[in-house]
Simulated assay, not measured.
Amino acid sequence: MSDRDEIVEVCTRMAVHADRREWDRLGEVFAPSVTLDYTSLNGGEPATLTPADIVGAWSGFLGAFDATQHLVANHLVTVTGDSAVCTASFQATHVLANRFGSPLWTLGGNYEFRLVRVEGAWRIAGVMMTVVWADGNKDLLALAAQS
């Protein structure tokens, strides 16, 4: 497989493993230290975490939804030696039955993945999410956090 194919694969696996609740496999896509930047959604500052930290947080938060679906497409990849950048479009739908409104909340935007080669395999060392649009019930975030 080419570097580009491997990079697209690992970025796709991040979404697939999270949506399928394959928490034991999710950690495999990350480098030992990962910078997550979700400030376009939540404000604050980017966080640097270990794969175990990410899996723990995402399994608690995303796992509280009835279902999620993260579609990642339009990958553009630039490789420079043992590092790479992959940009991609995303659409992320979150489903949670509730009595206070729509059970759906969907975001659309862009990811910028920063990757490094670790022991011969591409791993995600950074994710920056830029939200471009949203639709549905944003209150699902708070409801999921309470679960």
Rank of each mutant, 00 (worst) to 15 (best):
M1P: 10
E6Y: 06
V8L: 09
E9D: 13
V10W: 03
C11G: 02
T12L: 14
R13A: 14
V16D: 08
A18Q: 10
D19K: 06
D24T: 09
L26N: 03
G27T: 04
E28T: 10
V29T: 02
F30L: 03
S33P: 10
Y38S: 05
S40E: 00
G43P: 01
G43I: 00
G44K: 03
G44E: 04
L49E: 11
T50L: 01
T50K: 02
A52C: 08
I54Y: 05
I54M: 02
V55F: 06
G56E: 06
G56Y: 06
A57G: 14
A57Y: 13
W58M: 12
G60F: 10
F61D: 00
F61Q: 02
L62E: 01
A64T: 08
F65I: 01
D66K: 10
D66P: 09
D66V: 07
Q69V: 15
H70I: 04
H70W: 01
V72I: 09
A73D: 09
H75C: 06
L76G: 14
L76A: 13
T78G: 11
T78V: 15
V79N: 07
V79E: 04
T80D: 13
G81P: 05
G81C: 02
G81D: 00
A84P: 04
A84S: 02
V85K: 10
C86F: 00
T87N: 05
T87H: 03
A88E: 00
A88V: 01
S89T: 10
F90C: 09
F90H: 07
Q91R: 15
T93A: 09
T93P: 01
L96F: 06
A97W: 14
A97R: 12
R99I: 13
G101R: 02
L104C: 11
W105Y: 11
L107N: 06
L107G: 00
G108R: 04
G108V: 08
G109F: 00
Y111Q: 06
Y111C: 01
F113I: 05
F113Q: 05
R117T: 05
E119W: 09
E119M: 08
E119T: 08
I124G: 01
I124C: 03
G126P: 02
G126K: 00
G126M: 03
V127D: 02
V127C: 04
V127T: 05
M129N: 11
T130W: 07
W133D: 06
K138H: 15
D139I: 10
D139F: 15
D139K: 13
L140K: 07
L141P: 11
L141R: 13
L141C: 13
L141T: 13
A142W: 08
A142P: 03
L143P: 08
L143W: 11
A144Q: 00
A145P: 06
Q146A: 15
Q146N: 12
S147E: 15
S147N: 15
S147T: 15
